[in-house]
Write a protein that binds this DNA or RNA. Structure first.
Lengths: 242, 242
DNA sequence: CGGAACATTGAGAGGGATCAATGGACGTGG
DNA sequence: CCACGTCCATTGATCCCTCTCAATGTTCCG
């Protein structure tokens, strides 16, 4: 059934430690390939799925950044997350077989299609697959709780700092620098995600730069003082010190 | 193994349509009972599990309200959710076998213990169990996305209205009034959940009362104008939990 | 070159936070 | 049954963080 041309087997994929096969033995790794039916390339700005779409399957990101967003009635959109290679998209659609958010590629991307029924069918056969799939969903829940925390109890500077810390952390797991990031999203998307306006995002980047914490050049962020950034991200200790 | 004294079989539980057994046939309903190892009663303010606790199992609420909260470094706490009978607690612990939040009973309560490995073991045997379990986790993700939306893009009045709409909606599903609520949480807990201060919560209750939308008497809320309330919460249609 | 998309910066306004005081509700003990 | 303390909620006055409105700057590209 492995019928795709441009296929790279999970076992040869450099993301296997982060993605669905995480934690599987090499024997099971061979089986897990059967979960993937197709791999698809997307151009920048292309939509993977849309709010309201029938839920067909899950998607593992193999290359490229994504954003998910939900549309508000008045036309505005709120970004609910940024996803990177190795992460799974579409978990929201399981609830009632319709997607509740829209996933858009922020750069040219490539995703593996993972029909949920195949994951289910393979679960009894592949040791640890079910467990790991549950972990992926649980991780999504925990991650979102972190965002709720951020939105509910932090000020703008802390949110942006926390956002950067989270971003470089995830990138570092994928072998990238801990101090250099090239943002794949606009200021507006960052603001939407963090619950603040684009002007505020911009001002806080400027402020962090003035304080020598980061160096900002358009989308290119250089973290000069990692400790200071983390301190700003972990709640206001002396924020209002009189 | 159904060894508890004060057991009510799932098949006789009035919450079965909302809880884990949702959607199962009567034949499978008998089996699902094997998932439950214990049922435990908790007093008001008692803790079910704590941030950092080893993840042991999931918990289905049979009676009573709960709140979940995460502690911030500086000692404050942020409420991440309010749970009612039929809902499942503990899904956050699956990720790395430790709970990331604390669950506390807001009133005298009763929970069914659901070891995850039993759910897994039963999954291949009980038709639809695995699917429904996935739906429960997906529902948690969708619910939290709704909260993110609320925190990120709504003002205080909208948030409180959305909170009330969500609450009465879930209560209505459980057979309660659509217009009368007795809040089980303090203004402070509401504020923590909605990302606002207790004074603001209070002021907005007053404002909604002045506008004739609700009648507020301590914890007792009477919704006078449901349409007006929903209109104030309009950006928050979704997130109607199970 | 000129337009579009994106980002920065400034001035002013407003929503919610903070600080502070008062008002109930409830339980305990005299 | 009342006095009293505690917990919780309400209300007012003031401050400040972030939004809004507006103008300018920068990059990219046809």
């Amino acid at each position: 059934m492995n019928n795709q041309k441009n296929r790279v087997a999970c076992i040869n994929c450099n993301l296997r430690k982060l993605c669905l096969p995480s934690g599987l033995g090499s024997q099971d790794l061979a089986h897990i390939d059967e979960v993937i039916v197709v791999r698809r390339r997307l151009k920048r700005c292309e939509t993977l799925f849309c709010t309201g779409d029938d839920f067909a399957m899950l998607y593992a990101i193999r290359r490229g950044f994504f954003k998910t967003s939900t549309a508000l009635e008045n036309g505005r959109e709120q970004v609910t997350g940024f996803q990177m290679p190795g992460e799974i998209l579409g978990l929201d659609g399981i609830l009632d077989d319709h997607h509740t958010c829209t996933a858009v590629a922020l750069q040219d991307a490539e995703v593996c299609f993972l029909p949920l029924d195949r994951i289910r069918a393979l679960s009894p056969l592949v040791n640890g697959l079910q467990h790991h799939f549950h972990k992926i969903m649980s991780g999504e829940i925990v991650q979102e709780q972190g965002v709720m925390l951020m939105l509910g109890s932090m000020q703008s500077e802390e949110r942006l700092a926390a956002f950067l810390v989270n971003l470089v952390g995830r990138l570092h797991t994928r072998g990238f620098s801990r101090t250099e990031v090239i943002l794949q999203m606009t200021r507006e998307e960052i603001g939407s995600y963090l619950g603040m306006k684009i002007e505020t995002v911009s001002r806080i980047f400027t402020r962090l730069m003035e304080q020598g914490v980061v160096k900002v050049n358009q989308r290119h962020i250089h973290i000069l003082d990692q400790v200071a950034l983390i301190r700003r991200a972990s709640q206001f200790e002396g924020a209002r010190a009189s």
